[in-house]
Nucleic acid binder design. Sequence first.
DNA 1: GTTCGTGCAAACGGTTTGCAACAAT
DNA 2: ATTGTTGCAAACCGTTTGCACGAAC
Lengths: 139, 139
Amino acid sequence: MGEREQDVIAKLEAAGVQPSAQRIAVGAYVLYTDAHPSADEVLAEVERAGRTAKLSRATVYNTLNLLVEKGLLRQLTLAEGRVVFDPVIERHHHFIDEATGRIHDVAWDAVRMPAPPPPPGFEVREYQVVMRGTRKKTR
Amino acid sequence: MGEREQDVIAKLEAAGVQPSAQRIAVGAYVLYTDAHPSADEVLAEVERAGRTAKLSRATVYNTLNLLVEKGLLRQLTLAEGRVVFDPVIERHHHFIDEATGRIHDVAWDAVRMPAPPPPPGFEVREYQVVMRGTRKKTR
DNA sequence: GTTCGTGCAAACGGTTTGCAACAAT
DNA sequence: ATTGTTGCAAACCGTTTGCACGAAC
């Protein structure tokens, strides 16, 4: 067993997750990649690497969601695919109410921020701050 | 015909879009709402408002995409539903290559920014800058 | 032997596509 | 007549669910 796998097992156990063969295989990829893969890409990549027991789609989804729950992984909802429309054309920021999913516009001037630097070799066309949170408890 | 409809027609024509009955109906809702609706919510809302010719799902999608193309509407990909995973747990920002869809991590310290203010009555749990752009032309 | 994890297939929901019917000019 | 627009149904793709099999303690 490789060093990588040892490492994955340690992380899984530290998070209170039973290190099954499938979870190790998924973790050995997804916990070390910077490719920001989707669930299907994880499945494809693990199958390609091959040296593991059979792995079903459902197990990939189960495992990824479990790792997110346990704080080993973060879930990003930045990919195209489910889309929502905003008639406000001017640059502005967004706040997402995590309880309801409702999106609120936040005025551009509400945040004083220098233009952020893109990764080397890229140029920024547009940027915004995305906030997530909930309604404040009234006491 | 209401003032709202007149307005929509003007916007459509200014953008070089033929103002069909369906497009006017869609525009009369989506160009004036702050609810950030999905395509299906647009369909539901327009049907509820009712005072218009029949409207099919496909036409809603066509119309919304057309309005986005013409710059009358912005498309946000912030809603849950298509998801991608990142093993970097620490707070950081993201850059999305619009040509490829690839997502790059951007170090938190790369952007010097005060914590942004949420809409009144809300509190922020987490926030980040989301940049979109493309690879720089090499000349 | 009870609990937990997995695989399979079906269901589900949002989006896209192909095509025929239908305006509009 | 040509071009553009719409409706319908099917296809598609990512995700979730239900259930039965199998492994682990």
